[in-house]
Write a protein that binds this DNA or RNA. Structure first.
Length: 108
DNA sequence: GGTGTGACCAGCT
DNA sequence: AAGCTGGCCACAC
């Protein structure tokens, strides 16, 4: 299983209405410093057959750093809002409560 | 196969 | 407080 597949496998497990961070995913696949690659994987995620819920992955502060990669302006924000999140100034309000840590939740 | 480029992050100055 | 650096690893050229 290559790096990308591991990233996608975790991303697909993010529960509806929850979010996680690049760093958390990187740590969960045992490559803590590779959060950049997680972001890169997300950017390429549309190539993947399964739909990756990339909008549920933000940076460690809950900021929507990757919103531009959705093609449509505010698409990422709209998807998050439709899942019950509140976005203020490109940042998820209550991020720490909505945060889903793959390491903890998947029992790694 | 070297080099540059990322949706990042932590640590240092 | 804001900027720089190094680490990480896949990919395109």
């Amino acid at each position: 299983m290559n790096f990308f597949e591991q990233v996608y496998a975790i991303a697909l497990k993010i529960p509806h209405g929850r979010v996680t961070s690049y760093g958390a995913i990187a740590a969960a696949i045992g490559s803590k410093g590779s959060s950049r690659m997680v972001g890169y994987a997300m950017a390429e995620s549309h190539h993947h057959e399964n739909r990756i819920p990339a909008h549920r992955v933000v940076n460690r502060n809950g900021i929507l750093t990757g919103k531009h990669h959705f093609g449509i302006e505010n698409e990422m924000q709209k998807r998050l809002e439709s899942e019950g999140h509140i976005i203020v100034d490109d940042k998820i309000k209550g991020f720490s409560e909505a945060f889903w840590d793959p390491m903890t939740e998947l029992g790694l």
